[in-house]
Design a protein around this nucleic acid. Sequence first.
RNA 1: GGUCCCGUAGUUCAAUGGAUAGAAUAGAAGUUUCCUAAACUUUUGAUGGAGGUUCGAUUCCUCUCGGGACUACCA
Length: 628
Amino acid sequence: MLFADELKSDILKAVKAIYDSDFPTGKISLQPTKKEFAGDATLVVFPFLQISKQSPEQTANAIGEWMKNNSSLIEDVNVIKGFLNLSIKQNLFIDAFTKQQATNNKQQTTNTTLVEYSSPNTNKPLHLGHMRNILLGYAVSEILKANGNKVYKVNIVNDRGIHICKSMQAWLQFGNGETPQSSGMKGDHLVGKYYVEFDKAYNAEAKAMMSDWISGKFESPESEAKYKSLIEQLESATSEEAKDKIIAEIKAYAKSVTPIFKAVQQMLLKWEASDLGTLELWNKMNGWVYDGFDVTYKMLGVDFDKIYYESKTYLLGKEIVAEGLSKEVFYKKPDGSVWVDLTAEGLDHKLLLRGDGTSVYITQDLGTAKLRYDDYHFDKLIYVVGNEQEYHFKVLKQTLKKLGYDWWDSLYHLAYNMVDLPSGKMKSREGTVVDADDLIGSTIEDSEKMTRELGKLGDFDSDDAKNLYRIIGLGALKYFILKVDPEKRMLFNPAESIDINGNTGPFIQYAYARIQSVLRKANSIAELSSSAHQLEVSEINAKEKDLIKLVLSYNEIIAEAAHRLSPALIANYAYDLAKAYNQFYHDNVVVDATDISRSLFRIELSKQTAMAIGKSFSLLGIEVPERM
RNA sequence: GGUCCCGUAGUUCAAUGGAUAGAAUAGAAGUUUCCUAAACUUUUGAUGGAGGUUCGAUUCCUCUCGGGACUACCA
């Protein structure tokens, strides 16, 4: 809050003077005064009652009286119940505002922070869930940067494994050599298409196989034995639940022995053996995907300082596992698998290495965490990952702790909840995902439609207009996602698309564009631009004061948002600015040739407001238009 | 079963333990001689339930009812 430190210091003096008692600064509760009451800052006096031994009103009156007589900050006070409302002298706001330009004091820290976000698989295009991740990761990075941290944005691409082999196999079987060029499809969509093709073929083959089994035809003695034993279990199962479980097991088994799946498994083995043909195909298809992702990342305006590839890092964790074994913090089971016992930490036993010596997800994450520490010696490593992986990150941290890495507590899992559709959860298998590129495209189309309906095109040429639709569409989309607290599930209705009125990106963009228009008008008035007048006002009205307060709280908001890793805070701040400006605008003539010093002041206020909006939005990765 | 997250106007979202729980949208009613009406003004309407701690609880604790996630030799 504005002047909080100065006020607190005076309040302490008051308490000392009246009650002859020292009070801990941290326990002073100061908050902005609510709109309905007179004043700028409100002191909650309940904490002082122990010292004062008086009623809340009496205490508030006593402190208020002292402040009014002795504090150089205070103009007036009023008491309502246990709340002391303090009115701060107007000229302090004016002074602070006019000095603002010179003292844009951004705190500098030497903290190195890594933010990992996006982390896509290379077998399908990005969807709405990824967008929440990407926008959150980018915004958090920018906010930390603005607060003086040294930030590196990193991405880890899951470019290897069974999933990409599925797309590759389907492409070989059904692709007829189709490429992004030949099909005109974006590379990631093309590869995603074959992932779906795989799933179709896979299910069809499994179904055929099961009907063969039912009619007594078996492609191998192993299947026959397995099937018959499962059927026996099914017959002896008593509960519906147990039966369902066995049926699911039969289905899973059928899938695992389909020809297409066996081909995929072969392919993975060949990949791991560095088979040239397989690697070539893998490189080719991953290349398509990267080209596709790049388009989407660019469209979203996000970037990375370093990209890690799992194909290069997936073996790293094994050394750590060996190290843990030698330190005896891990243990080996008779089958050769390696485990860590985290029951003392309230977790469970966790597998770190398979019996056959291959690594699992957590093995890789141990490895990449260490690699990153060696690369950057970070003070903090923030993982932007869905909250369904909370358990995973707890295990990861505790395991690193057990290994004795003193940076284990620098890892932070920034968890976000899933995005719901009106029809329920998004499921890629059921085709109920909202594709990121489609969504961006349709939002931009909507903004175009909206703009045309409003007849806003004016003197825009077609490139300008196109750019504007893009800025507004993306602004609406990004703001919509970022204004929601990450921990909350959020509901997204693609049919209704994105709001463009109300607490939205375009509302704020509009306020910005309007200010630019005001500033253009100001420039066109020769008297003002050539004027030697100083920025001088002695009095301000309520709307001006509201706006000044907001503009001046910029640094504080950034610090708070960085502390809480909360883009939503910035989004709300930008909205408050836009709203306060609109209200200010309707109550005041900004550019008034008859009152030059007043105009200069209001123009400066407009400028500062626009800057604050622009900076806030740039932290969120949202562009702001010069006109709209 | 165990662990974790979420329940706030019809709807989508806010609220470091503080005042009469804010916005937006939808509904009702207004405002364009003026720098952008994608704006502004007025109005109707909510903390799942029961206890507890506190001067004071949407917030903290316990129980309960709903929704979800995790609890894989998948990543």
